[in-house]
């Protein structure tokens, strides 16, 4: 039982990162109805920015805020330059652009900062809590940061004017525009915020998985799994899904032989296919209805 609880807690720690990424995916999905396959690479690039700032001598907090701010601006720029002009184009064009963005960011990061694995500092230290090495103080701090951010976002979307406008723009662009919401700006803002959330997730997970251009690919798959479990149309569901996927991953790794270290990604694939087959709208999502 002790092992079970500790594993679940450790799963919750990585799950909080999956939750952040899932939330970023869902925010962009709400804004433009497409899945951002480059979300992980955007987060990876932001993490490299933070690392670079620290290499130049910036303190951790400044690097953290600087990278998040950079990502916010870059996210808006990507939306304005790449995706705004084709917003009416078919699904394929969007997938092509996301794959293009994925390839460019991955290759560019490798070009600028090379492919050697780098360590990334943590402000929380890496002492082991509970004395068994499963949950470190960094894990606890990571959970703390993620949950703080999620609560802030909840307050933002529930209780601020601009958050309400963003939700309106996502739910019904035409009506929102008639009510005076600047839909285009709200979409850009959504991209900026999603990029910044991804940056925070990247900076938090980097001390655990180490920093290299391919660090986020597998985490992105878990983020997708979380978003799918919760339902792509539900931000709260994405958070729940991300946490659930983190716990499932850790427990499956503990109790099913081989799965732990070697088949982590296969679990994510299995979760995605199973949920999409059994309940494509996820646990909390709206069912998709086609008008004939």
């Amino acid at each position: 039982m002790d092992l079970f609880l500790h594993q679940a807690l450790a799963g919750l720690a990585t799950g909080s990162i999956y939750a952040c990424l899932a939330l970023a995916i869902v925010m962009i999905y709400a804004a433009i109805n497409h899945l951002n396959f480059a979300q992980g690479e955007m987060a990876m690039f932001s993490t490299f920015i933070a690392w670079q700032l620290m290499q130049w001598g910036a303190p951790y907090l400044l690097a953290f805020v600087g990278a998040a701010a950079f990502s916010f601006v870059a996210g808006i720029a990507v939306e304005r330059v790449l995706f705004r002009p084709i917003h009416k184009a078919p699904v394929l064009s969007h997938i092509v652009l996301f794959i293009a963005l994925f390839a460019i960011l991955n290759s560019l990061a490798g070009f600028i900062w090379d492919y050697n694995v780098k360590s990334f500092p943590t402000p929380f230290g890496s002492r082991s809590l509970f004395g068994n090495g499963l949950v470190s103080s960094h894990d606890a701090g990571m959970m703390g940061v993620a949950f703080t951010m999620l609560v802030l976002l909840y307050v933002f979307f529930r209780h601020t004017r601009i958050g309400l406008a963003m939700r309106a723009a996502a739910a019904n662009p035409e009506s929102a525009r008639l009510a005076g919401v600047r839909v285009g700006r709200m979409i850009s803002l959504g991209w900026g915020m999603a990029a910044a959330i991804g940056a925070v997730a990247g900076i938090m997970i980097a001390p655990v998985v180490f920093l290299d251009p391919n660090m986020m690919t597998s985490i992105l798959v878990y983020g997708f799994a979380g978003a799918v479990v919760g339902g792509l149309t539900s931000p709260g569901g994405a958070v729940f899904g991300g946490l659930a996927v983190g716990i499932i991953e850790n427990l499956a790794g503990t109790y099913i032989p081989y799965v732990g270290r070697e088949l982590r990604l296969t679990i994510a694939l299995f979760i995605i296919v199973a949920v999409l087959t059994a309940k494509p709208s996820g646990l909390f999502g709206r069912a998709i209805v086609t008008r004939v």
Partner: peptide, 13 residues
């Protein structure tokens, strides 16, 4: 889109 997602996970796994 969902098929793209499932196959994306397949390629990475």
């Amino acid at each position: 889109l969902y098929l793209a997602l499932a196959t994306f996970a397949l390629a990475i796994a």
